[in-house]
Design a protein around this nucleic acid. Structure first.
Lengths: 253, 253
DNA sequence: TTGCTCCTCACGTCACGTGAGGTGGC
DNA sequence: TTGCTCCTCACGTCACGTGAGGTGGC
């Protein structure tokens, strides 16, 4: 019983059934992922059902973005795929985690939009400080602090709103709120000619008033911090900010 | 107050803070997505904090696979986002779309993991038939039916397990089970020289015993079906299978 | 003859990765 | 001097897309 040479599907039909294109199929042939079928008298490729079955499996894996090389390694000539089931399960878990994270982010964004807060990280930070009475109604957020808020928003995994949320618990304590307000005022008022002792004492109080972040941002060392902030803060304030960073980092280390 | 020309971050530092590579940053420069910063005396790019803020925004969008062109269209040229409400709303929409996409992706992954295309579809089908007493314990699934199971698995949106699941309700009726077992045996025993009347009568009974599929597979016409099955089924059985397909398709039409 | 599908090069695309060959900073 | 980062071409990669130019089938 010989296979008739021109009875099979042509490449366009095969592609349509599998939801892809002739070009993709030829690509798989070139990579050896799909064996070249026999040709009919006019040189057209003619496919049997095995090709369809295999092609559909390839397309299913491609539809979840598995690279062709991995597909080739994972689907044998015959399906006995246990590894691939495990890989797919772990992929599903990964995706679930991503969805989880995005859902939380979305909730925060909606909460902020609903509360009439602003999308400007510095403004959000200022509002939060005001709401908790840490910044008094008249005072403005100083430029250095404004800039720090933007940086925190950029660097922190959850952005400034995540940081604000994480601080809510910490700030529930009225004594902590008072200490925070105080160190913030002392920092704003820090004179350029302050002595190292004064600066370091303020830094110690500042660090003590801040919580240890649960999700710390990527490490940023003194040199980088200086490069980022040197044009925004006086040398005294910059030194103070660096000592605060050091003290907090040491707490986590 | 002039910005000092060589105080900023170098490209490698910027890349590290934003979780990417110098090459990617240069790529964004070339596309105009990120403005070229000033150079220091040795020709190195020196970045300020604005660049970091913008780069992190780009990377956040890239991390959810938004094409660079779309990113360019969605984040304003002006680093200061003025449209507060609009920015929040569009951010929320972005996140929602990302969640939507990931949810669908997860569903596809789980469907593929459970579809049976990873194990042997013919074996799954055989097991299901046996469990319901449609195939008796001794009989093997005939080659034509085995192949049909693979084709159904390949073509059906949910794979063979989806089809089996959909048939469970239908098969709950003992009378239906009996009719299915009977037509299956009659089909297996169909002689090559059967008359058209006999074939068509069997096809009518076969179609009557099958449920109308809720999610029909992509249309497959008589010509394609012949191309796929002509080497696996006798002409009589092929004709019968084609009439069954026609009758079921007509029920859906 | 016309319109459709197929064929084989072979260049294009997207978002970078990866040397190649050279200079600057500590 | 050594090792590191930076610079600018420029070619490579991945999974195909898209003509280019030509032939076969109805």
């Amino acid at each position: 019983m010989s296979l008739s040479k021109d009875g099979g599907l042509r490449i366009g039909e095969l592609a349509e059934l599998a939801g892809t294109t002739p070009r993709a199929i030829r690509h798989y042939h070139k990579l050896g992922l799909l064996v070249e079928p026999e040709r009919d008298d006019s040189g057209y490729r003619r496919y049997g059902p095995q090709a369809l079955v295999r092609l559909v499996r390839i397309r299913r894996l491609r539809s979840v973005d598995m690279p062709l090389e991995e597909i080739a390694a994972n689907i044998g000539a015959d399906p006995a795929d246990v590894d691939i089931a495990g890989a797919l399960a772990s992929l599903a878990r990964d995706i679930e985690q991503q969805i989880q994270g995005l859902t939380e982010l979305r909730a925060r964004v909606l909460a902020i939009a609903g509360s009439g807060s602003l999308s400007d990280p510095a403004a959000s930070w200022e509002t939060a400080l005001r709401q908790h009475g840490i910044l008094d109604q008249s005072g403005d957020l100083p430029p250095g602090e404004q800039f720090a808020a933007r940086l925190v928003d950029a660097l922190h995994p959850q952005g400034i709103h995540g940081v604000i949320e994480q601080m809510t618990d910490h700030i529930a304590d009225p004594e902590v709120r008072q200490r925070l307000g105080e160190v913030l005022r002392r920092f704003q008022a820090l004179p350029d000619e302050a002595s190292d002792e004064v600066i370091d004492a303020l830094a110690a109080d500042y660090a003590a008033a801040l919580p240890t972040p649960a999700n710390p941002p990527p490490a940023i060392d003194a040199e980088m911090m200086e490069k980022l902030l040197r044009d925004r803060l006086s040398p005294a304030k910059l030194r103070c900010a660096q000592r605060v960073r050091e003290l907090i980092e040491r707490r986590q280390g």
